[in-house]
């Protein structure tokens, strides 16, 4: 069983409009890398030049924040990831 990643609307243009992707990995970082292998254009939207998660993104695993482990947080098959952008409009 794979891990489901919900793609935020802002990034769906990088997944050919796909709202959900299936990935494999044992950590959040591995899952996002696998996502980037499937959709190479998404890599720059997720990681900075040092390979760290972009500072205004948060990853949630099964609706709980992956912070502070973030990319290192362990995941298992059947888990669900959400990529959340900070938003601040009023």
């Amino acid at each position: 069983m794979s891990i489901k990643v919900n793609i935020p609307y802002l990034l769906q243009y990088l997944t050919n409009g796909g709202k959900v992707a299936e990935v494999n990995g044992s950590t959040v970082g591995e899952c996002l890398k696998h996502l980037a292998e499937q959709f190479p254009l998404i890599e720059k939207a997720l990681f900075d030049e040092h390979g760290k998660l972009i500072s205004y993104l948060d990853i949630y695993v099964n609706e709980e924040s992956a912070y502070p482990e973030e990319l290192g947080k362990p995941v298992k098959p059947g888990d669900e990831l959400d990529i959340l952008f900070m938003i601040d409009g009023g």
């Binding site: 500072s55 205004y56 948060d58 938003i87 601040d88 409009g89």
Partner: peptide
């Protein structure tokens, strides 16, 4: 909830 800052931009709404 948030630790960083979102880049300043004209936000769509």
């Amino acid at each position: 909830l948030y630790r960083g800052v979102f880049p300043q931009e004209k936000f769509p709404v």
